[in-house]
Nucleic acid binder design. Structure first.
Lengths: 339, 339
DNA sequence: TTGTATGCGTTATCAG
DNA sequence: CTGATAACGCATACAA
């Protein structure tokens, strides 16, 4: 059995109160006593029980992160930022994943109660009503990329719509006419926003072109499959805008395997700017979302909210991704089009 | 304030004991009472406090994972497996990272005490003595890729040495003579084993060749830098064996950017078979480590150990990575060498 | 079937 | 400066 505070007290011939004082540095006590207690504690390899401590202190020193998934480069980056912020603030991190639908989020939410001081929630599948109903207002919460209830909750999100429009605008400016969109899961809010941006921009800029969407699931595999389908089209498009980089990369390889040259025959662009995008060949034009930074900011806000308690300042930050043009698409393309 | 068991008891006109019974299904009670309690609990949106529950039950239903890092495709895969096993066994997951040295591991170990039912530890920087001293034998522990204390602790690891030898053997069989190794961090045990395998195999197979090692840090960036250095060598080698795929991929792009053709001029191979390796072009020959599966197995063992308690079966599994040959290197290469 | 009382390990309040 | 002792929220042996 692990040593408890009582064991230390007995061995050091003091009360448990004194042990607690010695360890936490509260109150004043004889230096001699303190030294003895500390020595015994070390000898017994004593470590305070987190549960008991949390129970009375009403602080678990743990922050929860409810994410739809843990897997893939996007979440890897996100977790990096989250972990960084948590750790640098002396907080533990509890992660929970695979919330493909609202019901699972509800369950996870319940399970976190009394285990964490605050919650970072990213749930692209839950709507405002659900959140309104399931979010305990006793538990400090920060939302990420989630349709916000509009009130009382800090929220960090990416302006998917505006960014998608920017990408389409860029492609059109490069002279592309038939631009296909490889979409994310239909129930996913981010995916829906990106698609909406694509469709609106296309209709506004190229009224004679009909938006054309190929389904994907945000994974490399699904991007690969989408690429294969695109390459097999009767008349392949001259540009592909994938809803995220993973799919863009999968698509890239599929198109290459099918004999299409990128970017000469067909341009491919993505969304996120995940680390691998820097190295991929042919170069990938994409929309840079500083994922890790976004996660870190959200977590920092959560820490502040937990610390403030009485005075929770609401922060709503919307980040517009930055267009990163890596593939050259200017001169040649335009000329080819105007010919 | 969040509702407690007392609130439910008061509202339902029963004792807290009855509420507890109703919720946990223990003991027998009038169906009518149970229904009333459950209804009140739902109305009050009551959820048991995890801390208090853990304190008395002596089970936190939480498993801890101490990893050197959370970032990158390798850990992304690992976490996937870990999370999968934890969740499918109804366990919460607490992660802790960035243990670049033994001291940090010790701190993290302390912090986990009393917060988790069991620990999955991957610490390529800690040695047997350290573990012997810091691992509480009260806390079920499973080791991953860690020099084992040899006794009493389940351990799952990759046979880095044998795999590295296999890779060198393959390269030599393909006709390569000057094989450079891009190593991982020197203090990292996995990295050291892979390097040892490379050196031993090279000395055994090609006694006239001197092992040549370029430093790396397991990251894509460091692989890229290593590739640049290799391309700049007076007489570039005809093969590169990187200690992991991330570096191999970074290296690949750097070599390509420097005008070297892969695999015609120089072969590049890696270690891990991370997901992206399937799509990369030119194809990457690598050593497949079923990372997610390894994580899942380790976690399953941990769950079993936690459940057994009195009778902890020790399981030591060593996984030998499988050679995945994606790049063709047979005919041409051999001919070129023999000319 | 139900309620009372005790304890889990800790911190905090109050006397001494 | 130190030691009892009461919480914290919950589960359970025991009594009713």
């Amino acid at each position: 059995m692990t040593a408890t505070i009582k064991d230390v007290a007995r061995e050091a011939n003091v009360s448990v109160a004194s042990v607690s004082r010695a360890l936490n540095g509260h109150g004043s006590m004889a230096e001699e006593t303190r030294a003895r207690v500390l020595q015994v504690a070390k000898r017994l390899n004593y470590a305070p029980n987190g549960m008991a401590r949390s129970l009375i202190m009403r602080r678990t020193h743990t922050l929860g992160a409810l994410l739809p998934e843990l897997h893939g480069e996007f979440f890897s980056e996100l977790i990096r930022g989250i972990d960084l912020a948590a750790r640098s603030n002396g907080m533990h991190l509890m992660v929970s994943s695979s919330h493909g639908n609202a019901a699972e989020v509800a369950t996870a939410l319940q399970a976190m109660r009394g285990r964490v001081d605050g919650l970072l929630l990213m749930s692209p599948y839950a709507d405002a009503g659900f959140l309104q109903q399931n979010l305990s207002d006793a538990l400090p919460t920060v939302l990420m990329n989630t349709r916000m209830p509009g009130t009382g909750i800090s929220s960090f999100s990416v302006d998917n719509y505006a960014a998608a429009r920017a990408m389409v605008t860029h492609l059109v400016a490069c002279g592309h006419r038939r631009i296909v969109h490889v979409a994310g899961p239909t129930e996913n809010f981010d995916a829906a926003e990106r698609r909406r941006g694509y469709e609106d921009a296309l209709r506004a800029l190229l009224p004679d072109q009909r938006p054309e969407v190929v389904a994907g699931r945000f994974t490399e595999e699904s991007g690969h499959a989408a690429g294969a389908r695109i390459a097999a089209m009767a008349e392949p498009p001259d540009a592909v805008f994938a809803a995220n980089d993973s799919m863009a990369i999968g698509c890239l390889f599929a198109l290459g395997a099918a004999g299409l040259r990128v970017p000469e025959d067909i341009a491919v662009t993505g969304f996120d700017d995940i680390p691998i995008a820097r190295f991929i060949n042919p170069p990938l034009t994409t929309l840079r979302v500083r994922i890790a930074e976004l996660g870190r900011h959200a977590m920092e806000r959560l820490v502040a909210t937990v610390a403030d308690q009485g005075n929770p300042r609401i922060e709503t930050r919307t980040l517009e991704p930055e267009l990163v043009v890596r593939a050259s698409c200017g001169g040649d393309r335009t000329r080819k089009q105007t010919n």
